[in-house]
Design a protein around this nucleic acid. Sequence first.
DNA 1: CCATCCTATTTTATCGATAATTTAGCCACT
DNA 2: AGTGGCTAAATTATCGATAAAATAGGATGG
Lengths: 223, 223
Amino acid sequence: MQTLEESREDEIEHDDLSIVRALEEDIIFGRLAPGTRLTEDTLLARFHVTRHFARQALVQLETMGVVVRERNKGATVRSLTPRQVQEIYDVRELLQRQAALWIPLPAPDALIAELTALHEEHGRHVESGYLRGVHETNDRFHLTLFGACGNSHLVQSIEFYMRLSLPVRANSMSSKESLQISHEHHRLMIEMLKGRDNWVLAQLCVDHLQPSKKRYLAYVSEN
Amino acid sequence: MQTLEESREDEIEHDDLSIVRALEEDIIFGRLAPGTRLTEDTLLARFHVTRHFARQALVQLETMGVVVRERNKGATVRSLTPRQVQEIYDVRELLQRQAALWIPLPAPDALIAELTALHEEHGRHVESGYLRGVHETNDRFHLTLFGACGNSHLVQSIEFYMRLSLPVRANSMSSKESLQISHEHHRLMIEMLKGRDNWVLAQLCVDHLQPSKKRYLAYVSEN
DNA sequence: CCATCCTATTTTATCGATAATTTAGCCACT
DNA sequence: AGTGGCTAAATTATCGATAAAATAGGATGG
């Protein structure tokens, strides 16, 4: 049903932001493997934009840490070594733990309501297998949750590292079981927000990161 | 003596990186106040570069969080509200504390030697009042120190927030006394690296951030 | 005298053409 | 057969010109 809305790239107009979005999605869904070359001309042809926008999109993806650019050589989808994955996740744990600790508990009803709505939408997408929606609501859920810590700069950094770990998280998108576990975690988080124990919430946020990291590390070690 | 090497911008060639550096320096030395407009044409005239590079420099400064750009309006030097300063420093404390905790102690002799060399150079610059050198060796000192934590991504984030707090740190550059206190802190840090107590080191790193933050917040509150 | 619209000016955004660089394949030479 | 350099292809980097947008100042009508 949802697959109908794919691949309209020939028809609609594009600016550099939409190119960034599209490529980001290609990466998390595994359609663009790490190491894949991204030449400007390819983007030009695919998105029907002027060179200026294709280039700008690549520049932006580079600063987001999603692609690597070498001078006079072009851009490739960034590939992460296990070491880098470990480092990135260590920082993610640090940031998300602290954000969770800083959330004033119990959380206001408005926040609970907003998260519950996102949670339900997420659940529907998981059940129907609409991955694009799963990914989108998942990210919105976490940014809303961590946003409650009141430190917008911390949230920005959390968002940055979410982007950086896109290829790592790609794995877990492929199995419905993982998505359901993740969904259940979210439910628990909402419950915790009603209580007063920041430490339990923080631990939950840290644990929530483990499955996709472990899955990825296991995957690369067996190759 | 050192002032001789200033203002050669008319003569030497520039790429966007050198523009970024120059503007960065202008900000930390207070020559460019927060809120100042940076039009492309101004940079064009000042650095004798093509519009392409001036523009690219502004784009880069924006992603570094040093300037703000509004569509069709141009770039201005970012100004930080006290709230933002507080947020930024909360994150800096978090990151630098953790980096300090992750440094394996006692630190290897090679690291001690490297830091001692930087420390001495820093001291010379403080004494001679060569601010450009003070700033440069100061940043190198901290990046080398935190680099020892072994997590390059964490170090990158620390560097990012050092940039973001450039205007805050500008204040403390103006008083020799602050610089000397800072210098003494560095000496203590090196001492701590020889010991085994990560927590003392971490606390020192956090304390080291306080003076410039407090000075800045006091400054804006009295205006 | 005030509000509104218009216009001139400033400034950024977009573009396609051209220059510079790298890469790979080929050929000549040893 | 192997090595070195040379040419052609692919790709990115740079540029100046033009388009579009925002702004400020003044003119016009009420």
